[in-house]
């Protein structure tokens, strides 16, 4: 019997929730409607924030395993299948936090609020389609740097084009 295991989604979604219950980042790797998403966020926020700090970082919820870890005022939550390795998921969370920390230089919640798109870019470099893609922090940061260079080049090109158009219309 052939098992096509690589088609199975591993991580269903990633959430970053603040201590006040506000969502700072949400990435969905499984199809959820908008109503379902808000319900999931509401349920998990209540479930995770109310947990005592001494309890373990795994919650069984709706037949899934939710792995969360608190860093300062942020909860990093990953929901994955029941059969998956929880400690590996904790390592992924820690890896993501370390990458953010290297990129922003001592990351804080405000960095993620004002530069949320960068947080999404970094997450997309690390996780792809619900599975770990890149394990090297150095490679991730190099690719993010290359993306920024492209953005800068595009901005310069756009500004030079607008200058040319402005001169032509005079």
């Amino acid at each position: 019997m052939l098992h096509i295991s690589f088609l199975r989604r591993w991580i269903h979604f990633v959430l970053l929730i603040s201590r006040q219950g506000k969502v700072r980042l949400a990435k969905w790797y499984s199809p959820y409607s908008q109503k379902e998403r808000s319900k999931v966020i509401r349920e998990l926020t209540g479930l995770i924030i109310s947990r005592a700090p001494k309890l373990c970082n795994f919650v069984e919820w709706r037949g899934f395993k939710v792995v969360y870890k608190r860093y300062a005022s942020l909860y990093f939550c990953i929901c994955n299948d029941h059969e998956d390795n929880e400690l590996e998921t904790l390592a992924i969370i820690h890896h993501y936090v370390e990458t953010l920390d290297r990129y922003f230089g001592s990351v804080c919640e405000l960095d993620l609020i004002f530069n949320f798109h960068k947080a999404y870019f970094i997450l997309d470099e690390i996780l792809l389609a619900g599975a770990m893609q890149e394990t090297s922090k150095r490679t991730t940061l190099r690719l993010i740097g290359a993306q920024e260079d492209l953005v800068e080049a595009a901005k310069e090109e756009a500004s030079s084009l607008s200058n040319i158009i402005a001169q032509a219309t005079k």
């Binding site: 001494k54 373990c56 970082n57 929880e86 400690l87 904790l90």
Partner: peptide, 8 residues
Amino acid sequence: CDNNIRFI
């Protein structure tokens, strides 16, 4: 002593 390891 780590609750995560105990859970697993």
